[in-house]
Write a protein that binds this DNA or RNA. Structure first.
Lengths: 157, 157
DNA sequence: CCATAAACGTTCGTCGCACTAACGAAGGTA
DNA sequence: TACCTTCGTTAGTGCGACGAACGTTTATGG
């Protein structure tokens, strides 16, 4: 038998938070993507659908800001969702620079299905933790997130 | 004035652990890379140097397993470190398929400098949390990491 | 001893994500 | 009017994660 190399990761590396974070994030992404792939979706699709459902029709740059998807990348995401009939993209009559993105009933359906998948993935992800630990982890991560402001086109004020 | 869109991220999305994880990991990566870029290094360089310092000379696939860098990508990392004189790559006389990677004194020096940078980045990252929270977050992340085994070429037994 | 299988280093290519640059069309403002 | 900004869009860059394939070398087993 082999000497069972098991987890050969050096101690030093294993204690580094940024590495732990990267590892956990990778695992999380993998879980989510696996589930969503079963429906031929990616996480951005879900994010956009959520944003649309939450506040109604919006422009692309609106959606970009709210989901964190760059407006350059938003184009393709919307194309794919539009092809699937999950949303409609039409020019905004009041501001003709804009497109108004509107969720269709089919889109709302899809949102519900994707939501179930994403929720399941979260449970898989957090399963190793007790409910209290899950809540604490979520809280701490949210803290870090709000502190380390995205390199986005954020508030200048 | 604008209606202050501020943080327009939908509530639904903000509560999703995998998204929080991705956000925090991105911030962490950004902090680490910014620091390391000052020395013209990337995180893999650091990881490889740590692995070498911890257990002495090793083969490339050894390093690959221990650092998490794919062996395909390891090639370039070692090239760069070798160019900088931080390590030496020579064929293994006992197993001529392998290369023996050996840390040079210059490499050890560089490790210490990079270590300082990485440590500083961790402090920046965790600064929003109390020491107790930092420890707890690290613990929980380590738990998730060890549970969600990498999709790597892991144990077959 | 020879065939076959495995491991190693390497090259190349793919995919997704984050991010920049630039451009035409449209709107706001002086 | 001229100017600046916003919006959607295209194209392109860089990086990390990952797979395929190939030649070389070592291990295995009949």
């Amino acid at each position: 038998m082999s000497p069972a190399p098991e987890d050969a990761t050096p101690e030093r590396l294993r204690a580094i938070p940024s590495r732990l974070l990267a590892g956990a994030a990778a695992a999380a992404d993998r879980l989510v993507n696996e589930r969503l792939a079963a429906e031929g979706a990616r996480k951005w699709h879900f994010a956009v659908l959520v944003a649309l459902a939450e506040t109604g029709p919006a422009s692309q740059s609106d959606l970009s800001r709210r989901t964190g998807v760059y407006r350059s990348d938003m184009v393709a995401v919307l194309n794919e969702l539009a092809e699937g009939g999950h949303l409609v993209r039409e020019p905004d009559p009041v501001d003709r620079r804009r497109n108004v993105i509107t969720l269709t009933p089919a889109g709302r359906d899809r949102l519900h299905r994707l939501d179930a998948l994403v929720t399941a993935a979260q449970q898989d992800l957090l399963a190793p933790l007790s409910p209290a630990e899950q809540a604490e982890l979520t809280r701490l991560l949210a803290l870090l997130d709000t502190r380390h402001r995205p390199p986005h086109g954020g508030e200048h004020a």
